[in-house]
């Protein structure tokens, strides 16, 4: 039996903007502190949050003068952290997340990609990534595997 006390479900909001990802990561990691996550786990959470939030800020709310709220939900389940991001920005093109293929680095310097890494990183580090659009709301679900109750 694990003696780990479950953490309460987490829910908070940030306003879209260049600092939204930093703010959201910092707040989430603070709330998750009782889980004593190891450096690799906190690194994965911070990176996935950064990429997912930056996508919402850049593509969901592309007009910096007309941003909006991003809600972050997180619950500690048996298979890891179930994270849900909800915003009222523009829908994903084609109603789904980009494929997130690895970028091709075997090209000439001038053709080297400067972007397109974000969804690849999300899909590599997170599981069960699912996007749904309902009326004017985007919802992105994902799971980050963590070692339940592990101390490091």
């Amino acid at each position: 039996m694990s003696t780990q006390a479950p953490i309460p479900n987490i829910h908070f909001k940030v306003q879209s903007g260049v600092y939204a990802a930093r703010e959201a990561s910092e707040k989430l990691l603070h709330e998750l502190a009782p889980l004593d996550l190891n450096a690799e786990e906190t690194g994965a959470i911070e990176l996935v949050m950064a990429e997912a939030l930056n996508n919402i800020v850049e593509h969901g709310y592309p007009d910096p003068q007309n941003g909006g709220p991003i809600s972050i939900y997180c619950e500690h389940g048996t298979k890891g952290l179930n994270i849900k991001l909800v915003d009222n920005g523009l829908p994903m093109p084609n109603g789904k997340t980009p494929a997130g293929l690895a970028v091709n680095t075997d090209v000439e310097l001038k053709d080297m990609p400067e972007g397109g890494f974000g969804w690849f990183i999300i899909k590599d580090l997170a599981k069960d990534v699912a996007y749904t659009r309902t009326l004017d709301t985007n919802r992105l679900d994902l799971r980050i595997a963590i070692t339940f109750g592990a101390k490091n």
Binding site: A50, L109, M112
Partner: peptide, 20 residues
């Protein structure tokens, strides 16, 4: 201690700007 894909892209852009 932290870099995201935007930071990575900025380093790639710096290398491209320096030239072949």
């Amino acid at each position: 201690g932290f870099i995201d894909s935007s930071g990575l892209g900025a380093i790639v852009a710096s290398m491209k700007h320096m030239g072949q």
